[in-house]
Design a protein around this nucleic acid. Structure first.
Lengths: 126, 126
DNA sequence: ATAGCGCCTGGAGTATAGTCTAGGTCAAAT
DNA sequence: ATTTGACCTAGACTATACTCCAGGCGCTAT
């Protein structure tokens, strides 16, 4: 027997709002889940897994349009294009991580500067 | 004699559009530069440096409002608050980097899967 | 002197990604 | 039987971050 999730349960598990979940479904990046007799959405653990991957892509700055492209290729079983899209995103993530390291260095430098400015002003007894 | 830059030169050096530069000035995250007699903006190398730091914050996903907060604290010489804001952003960058590593792992896993799906379909002679 | 270029301003328009509202259905609890 | 709570839809609204446009100024080259 498969575990079924309501939209609010899915929302809790993924951290996305109920509105966002419906929005993603509307723009096509989440498959329309099975509906119960009364029309309410019912999610499977498979849905949950796909959902989690999508949110991971989103949190690494992949635009929804690009996520959508990926999903459509996946639905069309065009795995070569899936590979392409994901590979491009991978390169982007790597670039972003490189930028973040550089920014961190600069920020750490500034933080030490601010710290000494602050302690000087306080007569350095802290 | 200080080197002066026009807005288009600054744009070239920073990769931000002229419109964006004027927009940033309007919302207060860039100081209004000195103006030439005819009203045109003239940037110093100090301006350029500040500009580059700002774009670095922006590229690491710091919202413009937060950048603005930082700048205002800096102008007010409230270095303790500068420290706070920058420190908060540092933590955010570190979290983002952690998420990116996790996403990279998952993406690499998916990439190898897609690769084998594609080569299977092609009769695996490549 | 006039045409072209780079710059100026204020304000309108756009893209992205949601978020909120009004009005309605259904099932369980009082 | 009616109230409550979770859900539904369509569509309006919002926030963020630009981007574009119209109309105008001032210097340089023809």
């Amino acid at each position: 027997m498969e575990l079924k999730l309501s939209i609010s349960e899915l929302s809790e598990k993924t951290g996305l709002s109920i509105d966002t979940i419906r929005y993603y479904e509307k723009i096509g990046i989440l498959p329309s889940p099975h509906r119960k007799g009364n029309g309410q959405r019912e999610y499977t653990s498979g849905d949950l897994e796909r959902f989690i991957f999508i949110t991971q892509l989103k949190r690494t700055q992949m635009p929804l349009k690009e996520i959508d492209r990926y999903i459509q290729f996946y639905i069309d079983q065009d795995y070569e294009s899936c590979y392409q899209v994901l590979h491009t995103h991978k390169v982007e993530i790597e670039e972003q991580m490189a930028e973040m390291s550089m920014a961190l260095e600069k920020i750490n430098y500034k933080l030490t500067n601010f710290k000494s400015l602050v302690s000087d002003r306080n007569g350095k007894h802290n």
